[in-house]
């Protein structure tokens, strides 16, 4: 299970980066970035997981006294929670900028925007 999520996460990162590099449409690039973002989160979760252990919630399934032997590392999960929220903020900003770019040129083709090209 851990291996599957690790490989899926890395594949999503690769697919997202490839899409961001090869697509010309800004909206498609934004979608690619969100795919890569999901991949990074999946990799982080997979790295924090440990076989045969439970989620870090100390309810009836995991008594407090046995917590150290029964739960997985809670820190990657807290990090991913933060990463998801910040990822959403980044996506919203990208969409807003895409809207403004479209309003200024009437096109979402990245090759039409040459001011910062070198």
């Amino acid at each position: 299970m851990i291996t599957i999520s690790l490989f899926t996460g890395f594949l999503l990162v690769l697919a997202g980066l490839y899409g961001a590099l090869t697509n010309r449409n800004i909206l498609r690039m934004i979608v690619s970035f969100t795919i890569a973002d999901a991949g990074v989160n999946l990799v982080l979760i997979a790295v924090g997981a440990m076989p045969g252990r439970k989620a870090p919630i100390l309810d009836a399934a995991v008594p407090v006294a046995e917590a150290a032997r029964r739960i997985i590392d809670p820190l990657p999960q807290a990090l991913v929670l933060t990463a998801i929220v910040i990822g959403l903020g980044v996506t919203a900003l990208m969409l807003a900028y895409a809207y403004r770019l479209h309003a200024s040129r009437g096109s979402l083709d990245i090759s039409k925007f040459t001011e910062l090209k070198w």
Binding site: P56, I57, L58, D59, A67, I71, D73, P74
Partner: peptide, 18 residues
């Protein structure tokens, strides 16, 4: 992680360590 696992219940009192 071991610190969080052992001390969350008595220091913070939250079931969900995350």
């Amino acid at each position: 992680a071991l610190y969080y696992a052992e001390n969350t219940a008595k220091d913070i009192g939250a079931q969900n360590i995350v």
